[in-house]
Amino acid sequence: MKKLTRLLAALLCLCVFTPLAMAEDAGTEEASLLTRVLEIAEDGDDLIEMYAEDLSELMGIEPEEYVDFVYLAGTSVETGREVIAVLAVDEVAANHVEEMLNTYLEGRIRETRNYFPVAFKLLSEAKVAREGLLVVLAIGEQAEQETKLLLTGE
């Protein structure tokens, strides 16, 4: 009888806690990119959160191509500060996102060349990086470190 009670208790625990744990995991994943960037970027609180429309209009990256994204930009255009991370739906989408971010970066370098020396320097040093389906473009003093942390998930 004791065994049966224990078994029932264990089953009950599984039924109650497993969905909760799964929901928690899902919630973490859902907010992960924004949360992770805000944790990693020292100036995260000062950055403006850009929208899916911005990603589409500026970079040609469409919502059906990703499951999550974050696009943060500095308040002042002179600094060139931006962090973009896109978790693509599949390999094909990731390739396209990578290509679009490279095109965007090239355009930004060109347009700041004669204008915003600080932005131009940071943009020139920036690189689009990728790990699996996650594509990252960070522009800023700490871009290299931010990119590394985002890609490794540390």
């Binding site: 403006i48 959160e49 850009m50 929208y51 429309e53 911005d54 209009e57 930009a73 500095g74 308040t75 255009v77 355009g107 060109r110 347009e111 700041t112 060349r113 004669n114 204008y115 915003f116």
Partner: peptide, 24 residues
């Protein structure tokens, strides 16, 4: 960028407008 900043508080702010701009 200002539009995006305001939209953090008021999502409807110039929501249906499109801004196209190129420095230089």
């Amino acid at each position: 960028r200002y539009r995006s900043a305001v939209r953090e508080k008021d999502p409807s702010f110039l929501e249906s407008s499109t801004v196209v701009c190129t420095a230089s």
